[in-house]
């Protein structure tokens, strides 16, 4: 399911930055923040507004992992699968999260609420296993608490 994109809103976001090629990354970041992904319209609008060839906008948009060309959930749940977290039960946390959300790692729930991802070592091995929901880090996660963490985020909406 692709969310509706309000082109006027898109133009408005783009207009916040100086209309020149060097604004490219900043503009894409702003759009990503707002829509949680870069819709095709965004790639095209950005190209014409900043005077950067479409192919180059696409190249940059696909290079950085901070950008996504697929719709993403409002919230992102990342499960660390680095060595330390792996040993401390991360695969079970992932399994729990997958069950709770009804999706696999790398996917987004159809209601665009959650995107589930695995990452490799976030540098907090001392508190393994680590789960990151949006900007918040949860350390020493109890696998049976995955539901509670996710519900907590849901309740805040």
């Amino acid at each position: 399911m692709k969310p509706e994109i309000d082109v006027a809103e898109l133009k408005e976001i783009i207009s916040h930055s100086p209309q020149k090629p060097s604004s490219l990354i900043a503009v894409l970041q702003d759009i990503q923040r707002k829509f949680h992904y870069l819709p095709p319209e965004a790639i095209k609008e950005t190209s014409s507004a900043l005077g950067v060839p479409l192919s180059q906008v696409y190249s940059v948009a696909t290079f950085y992992s901070a950008f996504s060309l697929e719709p993403r959930g409002k919230h992102t749940c990342r499960i660390c699968m680095g060595t330390a977290c792996h040993i401390k039960g991360a695969p079970m946390a992932l399994e729990q999260a997958e069950d709770q959300l009804g999706i696999k790692a790398g996917q987004t729930t159809p209601d665009l609420r959650f995107t589930l991802e695995v990452v490799n070592c976030v540098g907090a091995c001392a508190m393994a296993p680590v789960v990151i929901i949006d900007e918040k880090y949860y350390g020493n996660v109890r696998v049976d608490k995955m539901k509670r963490y996710l519900d907590g985020v849901r309740d805040e909406d």
Partner: peptide, 19 residues
């Protein structure tokens, strides 16, 4: 013309048309 470019990164890098 700038019609095509490198897309993606790492193992998935490829030559592609925009979108």
């Amino acid at each position: 013309f700038n019609a095509i470019s490198v897309a993606g990164r790492g193992y998935g890098r490829e030559i592609a048309t925009p979108l």
